[in-house]
Write a protein that binds this DNA or RNA. Structure first.
Length: 260
DNA sequence: ATTGTGGCCTGCCCGC
DNA sequence: TGCGGGCAGGCCACAA
């Protein structure tokens, strides 16, 4: 499931697609086109032009077009980017290994013969033009302690839910959320606004550490808790059987002994 | 405004 | 062996 590190890997890959003339756009799935756009509009704004930059806010990939709009790409949980046949991440969690041509929801053919393809079996991602970015919180990869504090302050919602709220912090998904809370010794059920200064500092350190770690691994692996997120799974720290609950609409796993 | 819930999508896993 | 229900999670619409 693409969270921030995976999308950053896609962004790096997309840098290889810059400044190349776009010759063709294939967008066969109307469902995948968001915000009232259609294949004809994409043709109009893309063909004959080039991407000039590869940007990212949280899990949103941003590809501005010369003299044109910004193409926004979301990957849902099974989406991957393929440039010139090279996939941004291999072995995406929860996504099938095999490949069906029908899973190519959006493709660009460059005049030089190369291509940029968004492949998404479950169709939870999508393409938009000039996506709104004002409502997104600061990117988790460069989040400061003060920004984290502000994102959590005064809230009675569970801290896990706030971490996943993209309007507060961009880029944290369910698995990174569980991992950083586990490393911080914080229960996902804790009220977000109840964290002490020390706890906020610890949480910020864990978040920075996990994201740096995953970025270094190219987004293809997740943290230490990952393998134990199942029935009967045990805390890698103290061996306690993990507990599970739905928090913020997502399955959370945590250690009832060392996370409070 | 804040917080919670349900639905979307579809491949895969487990139990029958 | 085949079948079907439940599950996965990012994101959005909507409710309270």
């Amino acid at each position: 499931m693409p969270e921030l590190p995976e999308v950053e890997a896609y962004r790096l890959l997309a840098e290889g697609a810059l400044h190349r003339e776009i010759a063709m756009v294939v967008a066969p799935d109307p469902w995948f086109l968001k915000g009232g756009i259609d294949a004809g509009m994409l043709d109009d704004v893309l063909v004959g032009r080039r991407f000039v930059e590869a940007g990212r806010i949280g899990k949103l990939l941003l590809l501005p077009v010369e003299h044109g709009p910004v193409v926004g790409i979301r990957f849902g949980m099974t989406g991957t980017l393929v440039v010139d046949g090279t996939s941004g991440v291999d072995g995406l969690l929860y996504a099938p290994r095999r490949h069906e041509p029908a899973w190519d929801r959006f493709s660009i053919g460059f005049a030089d013969g190369g291509s940029l393809v968004v492949r998404d079996p479950r169709r939870l991602g999508g393409i938009s033009l000039d996506p709104a970015t004002a409502g997104l919180g600061p990117d988790a990869a460069s989040l400061t302690v003060a920004e984290l504090t502000a994102a959590l302050a005064g809230s009675k919602a569970p801290v896990k839910a706030r971490l996943l709220d993209q309007s507060r912090i961009s880029g944290v998904g369910n698995l990174i959320g569980d991992e950083v809370l586990w490393r911080s010794g914080l229960s996902p059920q804790r009220a977000a606004g109840s964290l002490s200064t020390d706890e906020l500092r610890t949480l910020h350190g864990a978040l920075a550490e996990v994201i740096a770690d995953l970025l270094a691994r190219g987004g293809s692996h997740l943290g230490d808790l990952m393998e134990e997120r199942h029935v009967g799974g045990r805390c890698p720290k103290d061996g306690t059987e993990l507990v599970r609950a739905t928090i913020g609409g997502r399955t959370s796993w945590w250690c009832p002994v060392h996370q409070h």
